[in-house]
Amino acid sequence: MIEKINLNNILFLDIETVPETENYQQLDTEMQVLFEQKTQYQRKEDISAEDFYERAGIWAEFGKIVCLSVGFFANKNDIRNFRVTSFFGEETKILKDFSNLLNNHFNNPQHLLCGHNAKEFDIPFIARRMIINQIAIPEKLNLFGKKPWEIPHLDTLELWKFGDFKHYTSLKLLTKILGIPSPKGDIDGSEVAHVFYVEQDIDRIVTYCEKDTIAVAQIFLRLRREELLIEEEIIHV
Rank of each mutant, 00 (worst) to 15 (best):
M1G: 13
I2Y: 12
E3N: 15
E3V: 10
N8W: 10
N8D: 07
N8R: 03
N9Q: 10
L11A: 01
I15H: 02
E16G: 10
E16Y: 08
Q26G: 05
D28P: 10
T29G: 05
M31R: 14
Q40A: 13
Y41H: 12
Y41S: 11
D46M: 01
D46R: 00
S48R: 01
S48P: 05
D51H: 07
D51N: 13
Y53A: 10
I58N: 02
W59A: 10
W59P: 06
V66H: 03
S69D: 03
V70I: 13
V70T: 06
A74D: 12
A74N: 14
N75H: 11
K76G: 01
K76N: 08
K76V: 06
T85K: 15
S86T: 10
F87K: 06
F88N: 15
E91A: 00
T92N: 11
K93T: 12
I94G: 06
S99E: 09
L102N: 01
Q110P: 04
Q110Y: 11
L112S: 02
C114A: 13
G115C: 10
A118N: 14
K119L: 12
K119E: 14
A127W: 08
A127I: 07
R129L: 08
I132D: 03
N133A: 13
N133F: 10
I135Y: 03
K140G: 00
K140H: 00
K140N: 03
F144P: 00
K147E: 14
W149D: 15
I151C: 02
L159Y: 08
K161P: 00
F165G: 02
F165S: 12
Y168R: 12
Y168A: 01
L171V: 02
L171G: 08
I177H: 07
I177V: 15
P181G: 01
P183T: 08
D186C: 11
D186T: 15
S190E: 13
E191W: 00
A193H: 06
A193R: 00
V195Y: 03
Q200G: 00
D201K: 11
I202W: 02
I202D: 04
I205F: 06
C209W: 11
D212I: 12
A217M: 04
A217I: 09
I219D: 07
R224Y: 08
R225G: 07
R225S: 14
E227Q: 08
L229V: 01
L229E: 06
I235Q: 09
H236A: 00
V237A: 02
